[in-house]
């Protein structure tokens, strides 16, 4: 039971992994994505993307800039212009 997610920048595929939940800074507010999320698409504002590897586990944050996120049956795809650690 895990959410598949991919983080892609123009330069490369940054991450292709599984997690329990990913919180994305959408332009109209943060949203968390778990497995089985309804199809959804949003643009992103500059901010922190938080990855929860396991339920209640330590979150990991990535700074992301510009782009958009797409949730489909295959999981979450984040297309960002820039990723900082």
């Amino acid at each position: 039971m895990a959410l598949k997610f991919e983080i892609v920048t123009p330069e490369k595929l940054v991450r292709s992994d599984e997690a329990y939940m990913v919180v994305v800074p959408g332009s109209e507010g943060d949203f968390g994505v778990l497995e089985g999320h309804a199809p959804f698409m949003s643009t992103i504002r500059d901010g922190a993307l938080t990855i929860y590897k396991t339920e209640g586990g330590e979150p990991e944050t990535l700074a992301i800039e510009g782009g958009f996120a797409e949730v489909s049956a295959n999981g979450l795809t984040v297309l960002a212009e820039k990723i900082g650690e």
């Binding site: 123009p10 332009s27 109209e28 199809p39 949003s42 643009t43 782009g67 958009f68």
Partner: peptide, 26 residues
């Protein structure tokens, strides 16, 4: 599948198209 958009389709598209051009050039 009914995809939900945030903001709406037009606005997303307006952001996406310039980006798409950048990517094509890149």
């Amino acid at each position: 599948a009914a995809v939900e958009y945030e903001p709406d389709e037009e606005e997303i598209l307006e952001q996406l198209l310039p980006r798409n051009i950048t990517i094509q050039i890149f």
